[in-house]
Design a protein around this nucleic acid. Structure first.
Lengths: 251, 251
DNA sequence: GATAAGTAATATCATACTATTTTTTGTCGA
DNA sequence: TCGACAAAAAATAGTATGATATTACTTATC
């Protein structure tokens, strides 16, 4: 039987991996950092091989991975060139994981939230429009998981992620599903930074707002579902802003 | 000097390419078609090699590409397994190109439009909030390109795509930029199916609606920009629905 | 049952060879 | 002498092949 899926592990643990994954992440992060500006050429294969002490096979497969994510493009005789940032696929679990590893700065946070505010209320509205009885049952189950006491940051984050994945699924739109999956995984990583479980009031508000979403979806009320989803996102933003201000004061 | 970018060519032409790209597209499309259900295992390497008559190198690089897009995951001794559809990266130029090649059915169209209606008005609003003088100038230039006469489907589609890319760029949000780039490229492929240039009234309405977007962005009016963007999308939807109905009648 | 040996699949390595394009060089004609 | 075209060379990624390493499942052994 297939294993249960490693939900957050990809973003959080990142331990020992294949040399391919290791080097892909390293080069990916260097690209994200802007070490190789768009339009410039990456060093030729032999040089990269030299640098990492691996076989050409590994390097080539890494390049294929980076090319698949829109970062580079290779041409015979010409070399491997970095593409314009516009073509970099930020809607990608690996890319976001690399980005998070680079640091969770304000700019990145806000960009993520902007996308989330655009997509997720729309997803909630679609879910309200098309939800099946099964979807609603799954959401209620998620809610139960979230509201059961005794959560730590990790376990609450997983429950929260699961909730949003189910909403994405209920839209019946594959693109929404895949977007929700990617975005939320990255967002939830922020829970490692500041989490609702640290503050009882925050915790209660978060769970309550999620319950509102379920109610609206069950009732088939699109605009209420979208509105409730917006509230959930905003609560998260406030928490993060608050944490930041407190940390700034401490310094 | 770097070449001008091949905007649509990736989605439309798809000519002779490397065997890697060819096989990646083939397997990617088979996966999209559901030929290998999630959870199942792909045939082992030797069998795939047999099938395509290429070297192991090529097959392995194809697998890395598919893995990078979230379609499969390979493990030593276990084999290559198809992942749940939720993890497939639909926000990807290649994946959308494969999907388009499979056919532009209603369901796909509407899914695309739903995402577009969620993201692009938000992008327009952000652009209105942050636009630079340079952005506005670029948009005006795009508009001029769109409204100059003598367009064929391809050339108008390119001008339209460029417009939306500039809007995405003006948001200053990398995720918005990359999303706009991917989505619009796929959407614009629909212009090969039905284009505003075929009908003078439609053409005029489309250009006019785009002009409204620029005006709103320049004025910094977020909600007007979002609203105008919604109108642009809806005009496109109407055109496509109309084309479909006429084609259905013909049969 | 727990442990160890075997085995089948991908992961990596090493070394060729091929194909494609850019650059250079050479040739011819004006 | 200059310029235009053509042929040759060189550089780089693309493909091919076979060997070894690693890993997780299976079976055998105690």
């Amino acid at each position: 039987m297939p294993q249960p899926l490693p939900l957050l592990s990809r973003l959080t643990l990142e331990r020992a991996k294949s040399s391919h994954d290791h080097i892909a992440a390293l080069l990916g992060m260097e690209l994200l950092k802007g070490l190789y500006p768009p339009g410039s050429k990456l060093p030729p294969e032999p040089q990269i091989i030299e640098r990492f002490h691996v076989s050409r096979t590994v390097i080539r497969e890494v390049m294929k991975t980076l090319a698949a994510k829109g970062f580079v493009i290779s041409k015979t005789r010409v070399g491997t060139r970095v593409r314009e940032r516009m073509y970099w696929n930020y809607f990608d679990a690996d890319v976001l994981a690399w980005r998070v590893r680079l640091g969770f700065d304000d700019e990145f946070m806000h960009g993520l939230v902007e996308v989330r505010r655009a997509l997720e209320p729309a997803a909630a509205a679609l879910a309200a429009q098309r939800r099946s009885a099964q979807d609603v049952a799954s959401l209620r189950e998620c809610l139960k998981q979230m509201s059961r006491g005794g959560h730590n940051r990790q376990s609450f984050a997983e429950a929260d992620l699961e909730f949003h994945l189910v909403v994405g699924n209920a839209t019946g739109n594959p693109m929404m599903r895949s977007a929700a999956s990617v975005i939320d995984t990255a967002l939830v990583a922020s829970f490692m930074y500041s989490s609702p479980v640290d503050d009882p009031l925050d915790y209660q508000a978060t769970v309550g707002a999620h319950a509102d979403i379920v109610d609206a979806i069950e009732a088939g009320d699109e605009s209420a579902a979208a509105e409730a989803m917006r509230r959930v996102i905003d609560i998260g933003v406030e928490r993060i802003d608050l944490t930041r201000r407190m940390q700034a004061k401490k310094r």
